[in-house]
Simulated scan of single mutants.
Amino acid sequence: MSELVTGEAVALELRPARLPSRALAVLLDLAAAVAVYVAVTIALVAATASLDEAAQTAISIAMFVLVLVGGPIVVETLSQGRSLGKMACGLRVVRDDGGPIRFRHALVRGLIGVIEILMTFGVVACIASLVSARGRRLGDVFAGTLVVRERVPAGQAGFVPPPPPWLAGRFSGLDLSAVPDGLWLAVRQYLTRMRQLDPQVGWSMAERLAGDLAERTGTPVPPGVPPAAYLAAVLQERQAREARRAFGNGAAVGGGQAGPAGAGWAGNHAPPPAQPPVAVPPAVHRPSGYPSPGHSSAAYPPAGPGAASPRADGAADERPSTGFVPPA
């Protein structure tokens, strides 16, 4: 489920980096690593001039492994997939589900990279990238990673709407260990593109993804919760756990918005103050689910940052809209 194709032939996937940009990033990384290796070698030769030849050879091999193999692994781990060459080319290494990589991902990529990049002068890596539909080399395949374009044109980056406030902390006890990375990727990409889909197609996709997610977690979707809102709430719960694991218990993950509807409450699972229900225009009958089948998504308030929601008195609401409506 690394790629989900809708009935409208819309592929929900990340933007993989192409071979030329990846090759340029690798060359910049190798140039930086070789420069560091030469500087360290010159310093060690001067410092170990009194040692015998065997000791000098052992130290040289150790420096080669530490600088040219261990260096890229440490850099990718600390920078979460952004080495010097990748930062210059606007690339980043991420997991298959779009999350940040960890030490084990960088370790597998670095060890296999010794064979397919250093020992074969990049021939194996180029062939694997050309054969792969997503431009992945062997290190990416075995590590479960993907090199994506981090800098995209303005307006093309997908916005993941935050879950509604009435779902805050509801899934804090959910077991997410059995959910595969491919399913997380499909959920995330659906949420970023759901407003571009036909309402009936988007509703069926949300139900299918919610059913798959509920099957993996072993807990059914709560009654009355729209499938799209359920997906957004579970995805933000997972992001909150990742943030606490990486930065400690004080970390908070917002939904990409700076208002009370989406910022700050997911990290400590404290539900926000009760919000008044959004009024529905008389001309449009809106069911409790979002998006609803059979209705155009243009009738609903925008879910982007800073979007205004209608109020009962007809004035614009200053709170950012999440795009979801509480159940009746």
Rank of each mutant, 00 (worst) to 15 (best):
M1Q: 08
L4F: 12
L12M: 15
R15I: 11
R15H: 14
V26R: 12
A32N: 00
A32C: 13
A33G: 13
Y37N: 09
T41P: 00
D52H: 14
A54W: 13
T57P: 02
S60L: 15
V65W: 08
L66T: 06
L66D: 00
P72K: 06
P72E: 10
S79K: 05
M87P: 02
D96E: 09
D97Q: 04
G99T: 06
G99R: 02
P100L: 09
R102V: 04
R104Q: 12
H105D: 10
A106C: 02
L107W: 03
G110H: 04
I112K: 00
E116G: 03
I117W: 05
I117N: 03
T120Y: 10
R134V: 14
R136D: 03
R137K: 11
V141F: 05
F142Y: 12
A143Y: 05
G144K: 11
F159G: 00
A168L: 01
S172T: 14
G173V: 09
G182N: 12
L197F: 14
S204H: 15
R208D: 15
G211D: 15
G211L: 13
R216P: 09
R216G: 07
G218P: 08
P220S: 07
V221N: 01
P226I: 00
Y230V: 07
L235C: 09
L235V: 07
L235N: 06
Q236H: 13
Q239D: 07
A243S: 14
R244W: 09
A246M: 06
A246S: 11
F247Q: 13
F247R: 11
V253A: 15
G262N: 00
N268T: 08
H269P: 01
P271Y: 01
A274Q: 08
A274G: 09
Q275W: 07
Q275Y: 08
P281F: 11
V284L: 15
G289Q: 13
Y290I: 08
P291W: 03
A298C: 01
Y300V: 01
Y300I: 00
P301G: 05
A307H: 00
A312R: 14
G314S: 04
P326D: 03
